[in-house]
Design a binder for these strands. Structure first.
Length: 452
RNA sequence: GUGAUUGUAGCUCAGUUGGUUAGAGCGCUAGAUUGUGGCUCUAGAGGUCGGGGGUUCGAAUCCCCUCUUUCACCCCA
């Protein structure tokens, strides 16, 4: 087929979709603003050296690489150019890549602009990111993230604030969510206590799936990943830990006593949940010890938010990272942040039918076009209405009225105004309400009142 | 990256064991209605059946390759 197309995993957005997407972005942005966060933007492309190694081996594979401009192959020696040598070739001819998330570019930004920034630095950033993943349900190759981060503060008040932001955003969007919280230090502690500290990543990846595949499958996977049977049986009581957050923390406190890191994590969680209890949070918030999250840079609290009334996966996630800027040369800069996945939020709202009905409606009044004289008469009236803040269009062509009415109908424009010979001679406007079909002849002044 | 799956008119889809000119509904255009939409009626336009190659007297239909869609795994928003 020779029809035009767009790359796999990317999408066009129609006006109807954009109005809805903007509704989501505007809601999120306005909440960020009330907490004092300020906007920044970073380029779509980063140097690959800033990106590689930050997201694990899997992440590196998912980076879109940008071919060097000019003569990218000119300086590549012939013996590198073998089919089995693609990684050496790409590193020789690509020095830029598309951003994979907003957190790493933010870390780079903070390091580069440290002298101009006031810490603790609070910023938000709403921009697209790209991942060369195979697209599937709720997964795109180009999608927007809405990030809020504070950097330069270790206070757990920041974590509490993020929970508050999540709560407010989803309350305004009318989505019921479950906010899951865990702590990487607790996970490290668990790995330590069961004697598998070096298997931390394997353990977290496996137990993260417990909701999906069940306890037995997780145990099998742990064994496959080389965790000893005694460690697995030691781990089991933690995986099946039930009760309130306070009860879970109490059990963990004794269980994790041998691990300094683990105890630190428990203490952090206790403080955080203490803050949360004072905040009148409306959404459900729970301590979920199986929550792990793949991104390797998290070191403290981790968050994940799921919509309760549909299965779309995680729609928001984040956590604390103690040393993200370290790789870029700035030590001791702890930060916390979360990222709202606007595209998945859109999908949730679509499946649950949560968008306001007439969000797409914009133009309020259409002036029909009946001819040259009429155009001249209508132009200043339209200008005055626009000055009053009313969205007005003039039909640009002298088409048949039938066609102009059909246009108004399809665009869902509630009023149409007709100025022809009759109206011109009487200095009036014929106004028709497209919903009721009623039609009235009005003066210019009456017109403004009738439609506003 | 692994394993499946989809592709026929603008859209949603029919198309019988390979057999003449590939159909429907909706939408679109024009008219019935030369200053009036939503309803109705009439007429019309629109497809090298995703692309390439092959088998066959003959392919939308069978085979191969490729692209695309959707889904699961991996991973994640």
């Amino acid at each position: 087929m020779s029809k035009p197309s767009i790359p796999k995993g990317t999408r066009d957005f129609t006006p109807t979709e954009m109005v809805r997407r903007n509704y989501i972005f505007d809601t999120i942005r306005s909440v960020f603003t009330t907490f004092g966060y300020l906007p920044i933007e970073t380029p779509a492309m980063e140097n690959l050296s800033s990106l590689l190694g930050k997201y694990g081996d899997e992440g590196d594979k998912l980076l879109f690489r940008v071919l060097n401009s000019g003569e990218p192959f000119a300086s590549v020696s012939g013996d590198i150019l073998r089919p089995d040598n693609s990684s050496a070739i790409t590193s020789a001819v690509c020095e830029k890549g598309l951003r994979y998330d907003l957190t790493v570019p933010f870390a780079r930004f903070v390091v580069q602009h440290q002298s101009e920034l006031t810490f603790p630095f609070r910023r938000y950033q709403i921009q697209p990111v790209w991942r060369a993943d195979r697209p599937q349900k709720g997964r795109y190759r180009e999608f927007y993230q809405c990030d809020v981060d504070v950097i330069g503060s270790r206070s757990l008040l920041n974590e509490a604030e993020l929970v508050q932001i999540v709560d407010t955003v989803f309350e305004r969007l009318n989505i019921n969510v479950l906010v899951k919280i865990n702590n990487r230090k607790v996970l490290s502690g668990i790995a330590e206590v069961i004697g598998e500290a070096d298997k931390l990543v394997d353990i977290t990846v496996a137990i993260d799936k417990i909701d999906k595949i069940g306890l037995d499958a997780v145990k099998a996977e742990l064994q496959e990943r080389g965790v000893s049977p005694t460690a697995i049986s030691k781990l089991e009581p933690v995986l099946t830990l039930k009760g309130t957050t306070v009860e879970k923390l109490a059990v963990l406190e004794t269980w994790l006593a041998p691990s300094v890191t683990g105890m630190l994590g428990v203490e952090e969680l206790r403080t955080l949940f203490g803050y949360i209890s004072t905040l009148n949070i409306k959404q459900e918030v729970e301590l979920d010890l199986s929550l792990a999250r793949g991104l390797s840079y998290y070191t403290g609290a981790i968050f994940e938010v799921k919509a309760k009334d549909t299965e779309i996966g995680s729609i928001t996630g984040g956590g604390r990272y103690d040393d993200l800027t370290g790789i870029f040369g700035l030590k001791d800069m702890s930060g916390v942040g979360i990222s709202f996945g606007a595209d998945r939020i859109y999908d949730v709202m679509t499946t649950l039918n949560l968008f306001p009905k007439h969000a797409a409606q914009a133009t309020r009044l259409l002036f029909a076009n009946l001819g040259e004289q009429e155009e001249l008469r209508v132009l200043p009236i339209a200008a005055k209405l626009r000055q009053q803040g009313i969205a007005v269009e003039i039909y640009p062509d002298r088409a048949k009225l039938k066609k102009q009415f059909e246009y108004a109908d399809k665009r869902d424009i509630p009023f149409i105004a007709i100025v022809g010979e009759n109206e011109m001679s009487k200095n009036t406007v014929m106004l028709k309400d497209m919903r009721t079909g009623e039609q009235k002849e009005l003066s210019e002044l009456e017109l403004l009142n009738a439609i506003s």
